[in-house]
Design a binder for these strands. Structure first.
Lengths: 226, 226
DNA sequence: ACCTGAACACCGTTCAAGT
DNA sequence: ACCTGAACACCGTTCAAGT
């Protein structure tokens, strides 16, 4: 399927699926989830929208492909000489950092059910869950718990980033606004939420994410290591 | 702010925020996330789009309000005479069932960060986490783990439902397609995913959801009950 | 085989004009 | 105060026409 690659001077490089995905990632990083449209994309690639459809099926496929381009390298390294728990922590943290750097990936992962990026993560986590001694018929539920938690954090990160961008807030002012909103809730009905508002404002996403992973790992150990 | 309520014969009831939300929920239940537009909504309410904007700020607010109308009653009952663990299970299952009946709620919850529906759930879970003996400075991370897991499942449910609707699949044929796609993966690279494909096809969402909650609860117990 | 770009059906939102 | 509905700027996707 290699193209003819004549040295046409109309464009520096001829259009290709790889170049389209690369440009899409740049647009998503710059402009967030709303930064990628067929208008912005075809303008950046100096072509028309129809040309893009020659190389990709639709926007959903494009998002999944862009997502996979970020996720695949993160899931690649083998991380030898480590306990299953440590590998799971490493995989989860790698994913967290990737989503932190590209918040749109969190949203894309949620919408890429059963597609390649999810399968990569499932495989990586599943092998470790098996190594932890979880019985065959409980492995799916156990990996699912990890996967749903990770996707939950990713989706939340994506939503937060999109909200902050829309209202021109940085992370700390965004958290400050939420904190204030919580402090204004009815003390009778929302004692816990109010009591935790300040702690929430100053929390470290990454630390709390790992704490959640550790809670699930402890639950697995408590169930299978005795 | 009560309207004049003249018995005009143009419409059976005068427009109101409550009636708009009610109609929105009906449209979302019928047509999924894409079923609610200002066109379908104003048609169903026998009015123009401008009239709707008199009562609500924008579509995001409308989605959050519709979401809260589903979530609020589920979070209301007190569930006396139960352990904190059982209350958490009850709250989580109630939410799961609500999202199962209205998949768009899963997506709406994720996008309603720091808004009322999330605060209701946070409060309900937080009080029980406190009752479990989690120290003050770990309460946020602990409730977050539960919340992110629940939102992860909800978001995934919403995405699955949207995908199935788009391709005219019911739940079991949808899972069958994913299962087949996984079985076609490279055996060298995806041994775990392939081995679990059949188990995934026949799994019970609700049972697995509760298994994840129990894993987190066990992790909390292992951390704080000794 | 690959690209062009106008056209299509749709979307959320606005706003001058009505009552 | 509340409603009307045309208009606006945008979106993903298609497709006849070009090379």
């Amino acid at each position: 399927m290699a193209g003819k690659q004549r040295n046409s001077s109309r464009r520096e490089q001829s259009l290709s699926r790889a170049r389209i995905i690369e440009a899409s990632i740049e647009l998503l990083d710059i402009g967030g989830e709303g930064g990628l449209t067929f208008q912005t994309l075809s303008k950046r690639l100096a072509t028309g929208p129809g040309a893009i459809y020659w190389h990709i099926d639709n926007k959903s496929d494009l998002m999944t492909a862009a997502c996979d381009a970020i996720v695949a390298p993160v899931m690649a390294p083998p991380l030898m000489d480590a306990t299953p728990e440590d590998v799971i922590r490493g995989v989860a943290l790698g994913l967290f950092d990737a989503i932190d750097a590209h918040p749109w990936v969190g949203s894309a992962l949620v919408h890429a059910v059963g597609r390649l990026p999810s399968a990569r993560i499932l495989e990586r986590l599943g092998q470790q869950v098996r190594a932890l001694g979880v019985s065959d018929d409980e492995q799916w539920a156990t990996v699912s718990a990890l996967l749903n938690y990770i996707f939950g954090v990713g989706g939340q990160n994506a939503a937060n980033a999109q909200f902050a961008r829309k209202h021109d807030l940085n992370r700390s002012t965004f958290l400050g606004e939420v904190s204030i909103a919580w402090l204004l809730l009815d003390p009778e009905e929302y004692p816990f939420t109010r009591s935790i508002a300040v702690q929430m404002r100053d929390h470290d996403d990454r630390v709390d994410f790992l704490a959640g992973i550790d809670l699930i790992l402890k639950g697995i150990q408590a169930t299978w290591h005795r």
